[in-house]
Design a protein around this nucleic acid. Structure first.
Lengths: 192, 192, 192, 192
DNA sequence: TATGAATGAGAATTCATTCAT
DNA sequence: CATGAATGAATTCTCATTCAT
């Protein structure tokens, strides 16, 4: 079915060019469908983009939720979250990047709101996991939403840096690095 | 002089719309100059943007370097870095965001490279401060470049979240929050 | 089909104004299509122009080649070449003029090279006819490429003059005049 | 004086780029004067161009007229004319080319008329020399204006070809070639 | 379902010219 | 004499979207 083909191609094209530079022409061309076909399946560019984003978020949320059911320790839980996010950022680097960073004013207001909601929902979802840790007395008493937003931003930014400077360590080291920083910070002795 | 006016207006317009959505027309209109005047003072959109970015980076680098000369403790140093970055992110939120996140294709390749270099230089500059801490035995033995990239991303992302959800704490709390997370992590006891 | 309409109109507009002064706006306007339609059918101004030129050259080359197959005497052959060139120069005067004379900088380098090649190919094609005459001992031993270039330039320039001073003779006289000059020169007795 | 400098530079810039692509900016830049200075000395681009053209024509007319006074044979006279034209075309190739070929509609109507007049005057001047030959019974009974226009076009076009294909003969050979063609044509025996 | 020709509202950029100094 | 900042009309090109088939 051409709808599937369009979605796959759209992920590629948006990833490579960012939202504004990606063109419906190129998506159609690379998906081997006529331009009109895009508009047969999707109302417009913004809605096509939203579809991809929704799918992407759902995938990671599904993964994390599967983990939650597995009754892991919070430590393991956080390790898994980091891993899933790294998967997302390293595999569809640009797309994740767009969602977390490039949601700018040039998108249909209506669709933009939905996208922002998806992003916040995801942040809140991660925050709820952290909140759990707070109640258990494992985590500091911090604003979990801010912490979740911060973690996502850190992962994104550092992945970006990593992708442009591949020599600076392996994927495993990156994962370990994030786990350490997030759980125990940079200082060898507590800075408080 | 209209060059100054253009720069100020350009910061606003780029901040509000992102790079691709910002139009030279609007900058000219809001700066109350003719479109041609933009091109009299700057070779093009990309170079105008680069000018803003360069200025922005220079401002924060200058601040941090002034601090470095003041012989502060590393703890204080890091606090200051967080504060200066927050200044940048909270005051010219979108602009900083663009620089750290929206440097996508579609900008003059040449200018894009320069912008990326500016960003990496800044990351490396921050990394050098952390490196110092490592030598002094205060910081963990981590990849400082990755850490610096992560910190910047965390600050950016969380500021973004903060700006959209102002009710979740004061500026001072944010600052304290970041300091804690960065230095000591989320866990109450070291996770290693 | 609007592609045909565009080509016809483009010939007119380029002819009237020369390459640089012809505007895509005017072509669109006069072809009764939207500006975007031009770019739907042609990648840009230079390529649209190239299309016209290619068509024009092909037309005349086809005519001359048809003649070649007809086993005419060289005298007749040259008469025909003059006639076909006059057709070209008198009917699409400005366009031919542009091709032979106005291929200046300011056209896409790539397209410019192609245009120059088309022009040189045409010159060489004419030269090959002359070369034949040399082998048959009918023509002087001259550089045929230079001669062909000279003939084309002479025809163009004189046609131009003729078009601006119509009273100075009929089309037939012009044809006869060129034939005489080219074959026998201006002098009544050989000047050597 | 900067007026002289401007004229010299303008010849270069117009030669390199053609009339429409040559910009007042570049002329000012390369003449090391401010843009305003151009407009201090010349009313506008078209008039600046006209000045160069007038100067160029005057130079060659002066040379030919000096020859005329020297009581040369017509053969020698024509040889000289060819030589002077070659000087013009080979030395300021593009400029001569512009004058003879690129006088298009995009120039101030008023100035354009003057330029066309200069060109026609030059053609008529050459024609008058040929006319003389006709009266002396040395030349064929042809339309001398058309012949003069044709000669100039042939010289220009062939020079152009020559400049792009330098290997095909020396300057002296070119001169001899033109002399032969113009006086005696391509055929070894009269083609009438 | 799917097509692709056609659209038209922008967007960036160029450049001859003006004018206050 | 000379300047150079400022202008704005004109120009090329992009691209999301529409619609008849």
């Amino acid at each position: 079915m051409s709808k599937e083909k369009i979605i796959q191609t759209a992920v590629e094209v948006f990833s490579e060019n960012g939202y504004h530079r990606a063109s419906m022409d190129e998506i159609a061309l690379r998906a081997n469908v006529a331009k009109g076909t895009l508009y047969y399946h999707f109302p417009g560019k913004a809605q096509l983009f939203k579809t991809l984003v929704k799918d992407g978020f759902q995938e990671i949320i599904d993964k994390v939720q599967a983990d939650l059911k597995a009754n892991l320790t919070l430590e393991e839980q956080i390790k898994r979250i980091i891993r899933h996010n790294l998967d997302l950022f390293l595999e569809s680097s640009r797309l994740a990047h767009i969602v977390f960073n490039e949601l700018s004013n040039g998108i249909d207001q209506e669709v933009l709101e939905e996208l922002k909601k998806l992003r916040i929902d995801y942040i809140h979802f991660l925050a709820s996991v952290l909140e759990e840790g707070k109640h258990e007395g494992v985590l500091r008493d911090v604003n979990c939403n801010l912490a979740a937003a911060g973690i996502v931003g850190m992962l994104d930014s550092a992945c970006n840096y990593f992708l442009n400077n591949k020599h600076e360590g392996s994927r495993d080291q990156i994962e370990q690095f994030f786990y350490t920083i997030i759980t125990s910070g940079l200082f060898l002795t507590s800075g408080e």
